[in-house]
Design a binder for these strands. Sequence first.
RNA 1: GCCAAUGUAGCUCAGGGGUAGAGCACUUCCUUGGUAAGGAAGAGGCCAUGGGUUCAAUUCCCAUCAUUGGCUCCA
Length: 642
Amino acid sequence: MNITFPDGSVREYEKGSSAISIAKSISNGLAKTVLAAKVNEEVWDLTRPIEEDASLQLLTWEDEDAKKTFWHSSAHLMAEALEAIYPGVKLGIGPAIDNGFYYDIDLGEGRSLSLEDLPKIEAQMKKLAKNGSKYIRKDVSKADAIAYFKEKGDEYKLELLEGLNDGEITFYTQGNFTDLCRGPHIPGTGQIKAMKLLNVAGAYWRGDESRKQMTRIYGVSFPNQEELDHHLAMLEEAKKRDHRKLGAELELFMFSEKVGAGLPIWLPKGTDLRERLSNFLRNEQVKRGYLPVITPHIGKKELYVTSGHYAKYGEDSFQPIHTPKEDEEFLLKPMNCPHHCEIYANVPKSYRDLPYRVAEFGTVYRYEQSGELHGLTRVRSFTQDDAHIFCTQDQLKDEFLNVLDLTKTILEKLSFSNYTAQISLRDPDNPDKYIGSASNWDKAERAIIEATQEVGLKTVTAYGEAAFYGPKLDFMIKDALGRSWQLGTIQVDYNLPERFELEYIGADNEKHRPVMIHRAPFGSLERFIGVLIEHTGGKFPLWLAPEQVAILPISDKFVAYADEVRQDLMRKGFRARVDYRVEKIGRKIRDAETSKIPYMLIVGEKEMENKEVAVRKQAVGDLGSQAISDFMQSLSKELESE
RNA sequence: GCCAAUGUAGCUCAGGGGUAGAGCACUUCCUUGGUAAGGAAGAGGCCAUGGGUUCAAUUCCCAUCAUUGGCUCCA
């Protein structure tokens, strides 16, 4: 049979050869590092015989699919360990996830598991891994499979079997452990050299809260100890950068039980940062033809009935505000778009007025479930960097290009260099669930695709992920630790212009309906700043830092000079503060370092005499002395380059 | 919302049925110093809130509130 490799080369192999034997024929080194194979675009066990002509890609640790296979096999290893320690344990599902694996287990009445039990299970896993058992795949009939799990008394697996057809059922066995499993798996447990169980949590069987709660054990594993250590160090670093922790330490924001859960309160330094960020975006938007507007935080119920939000946000949200007048109800706004539609409708529009772009840093209120709240990234009041663009169908593409350009400018300014976008299109099998004409949808989808191609944006396309009212583009951003965040979004909307009966007079003197684009490059300021804090670890770029320079007098004899320096800096628009405390210089430096102030100016006898400052850069160290004017010039230069 | 854990000084945490503890931060005093923590003293707590059990509750029980981790990843 002929095997085609990714580089296009074709080689002849004996029928029934496995991927691992093919790997060996290429090189022994390769055979050692390969974990799984992609046969005709499907991930396979390395040991599974290939029976006919096929394309073959050998997967190593670097491939996402190989990692998933490795972790899935690790989940089986954990299950084997659990059966050894807890006889009679019942198993739910045990998949690989983005960063490791888990297994849902039911220990039975009266038995429970806590974090303290994890090392024991881990030790057992290591012991079993040393045995180097092979993962053996076996086709089983449905009847045999049912008989096996009945005997074992595992009702979860029996339930899973109900959904499977005879002839497509496989078991995998390693050592003394057999599991219902589609596979694939790595060849043997011996390859799992390093593992760590991270967490236990409750999880409902099949994610259904009316069903039994199982114990979920999370873990992660690697082919060698160094990778595990690196991963654990990364988790440590992520913990250190947690925006909730840094937010408190750097005095950026707070929460108060009295004010309410999920309602962030911006402290002076956080407000400073946030204002700089908004001003930056506001300026970029004005450059691109946006018109800033301000609308109230509440609106009459009828507004949201018109927009359709009342039906969507009605019950599980903040309840209406009543007034002394009977039957009068206001809602806290969950979105800005209805208000903006009213702005559009205020004065009759001509096609010459389009595109009409209104922008608002609009604070909205949504009653997130209490369990969903999380720092700044999941809150009940947040400010969208919202704008709505009303345009003609033909202007869609240019408007997308305009927004993409804006988004790119912003992300690059904030040194998010690694981002992709998801294009969400209609479900081709379900064309009826969308509002708006098919030809308009075609145009809009094409506009998005072409615009993203023209700017060279990396995208993935998701069919069926579009909203009922229009296709959309979501930005996925990778931060400095390689974690993905969904931030900005651009959405086409055929629904609201319809509901608000928005119109413009065309060149033909007829009435037409505009298309609306919702877009928010940051998503929300809260979420974005949360991500920015973790991305930078609290070391903000100079232009954003609430305090740019800390002036540290050696002793209070030099306080007057320190004040002079501060005056100079402030007059040039730099943000500087003097540390007046009667402390040694080492202490002042340490405190400024931990507050992550970008520059420290140490001033003492020498500096005062020479009218200089001794410059120290945060996390870098002493840069030597220079004249204040020179220092300010280099600051300006740094700001320009950011 | 559901499940679990947690809630003690501004922060990080120890403690435990009988008058509440440490380190850091804070205040005062001493020290006037040269690139990541100088010394001493002091002040600071309704032990989250509300009920219950008990002679006695911060400690045990229940509820509430808040925080944290899960609850979406499908053998």
